[in-house]
């Protein structure tokens, strides 16, 4: 497959994620949109990894493997992030009985 298709697919998924973050006020949905963006990036990384492998497989049989390892690490970080993030959301819900992010405007003052 030409790499363009993957690029545009990833960009589209990423932008849908951005729009979700911007339009929703539910903290959990926002969180899910962030996961969506991460996955878009992961997809692109894998596609690029295969592209490099295709170009350089003759000289280096392991070419492009770093890209897939990066995806692995991103998944690790995302898992850690989700565990802490959901803990925060639960905490917030317990204190305010709401998961509206605008309720968190205590950053002001």
């Amino acid at each position: 497959m030409p790499i363009n298709y993957y690029i545009f697919l990833s960009v589209a998924l990423f932008c849908i994620g951005v729009s979700g973050v911007l339009t929703r006020r539910n903290a959990i949905i926002i969180f899910m949109c962030v996961e969506l963006m991460l996955n878009a990036v992961n997809l692109l990384l894998v596609a690029f990894s295969k592209m490099h492998h295709h170009a350089q497989a003759a000289t280096n049989p392991n070419a492009g493997i770093d890209g897939q390892l990066f995806v692995f690490f991103i998944m690790v970080v995302a898992a850690a992030e989700v565990s802490v993030g959901l803990a925060i959301i639960v905490m917030m819900y317990r204190n305010t009985h709401s998961i509206d992010v605008n309720f968190l405007n205590r950053l002001k003052n």
Binding site: V21, L22, R25, V101, N102, N105
Partner: peptide, 10 residues
């Protein structure tokens, strides 16, 4: 500085 997280992201 509205304190609204959504505004900041925007």
């Amino acid at each position: 500085q509205s304190g609204l997280v959504g505004g900041y992201v925007l």
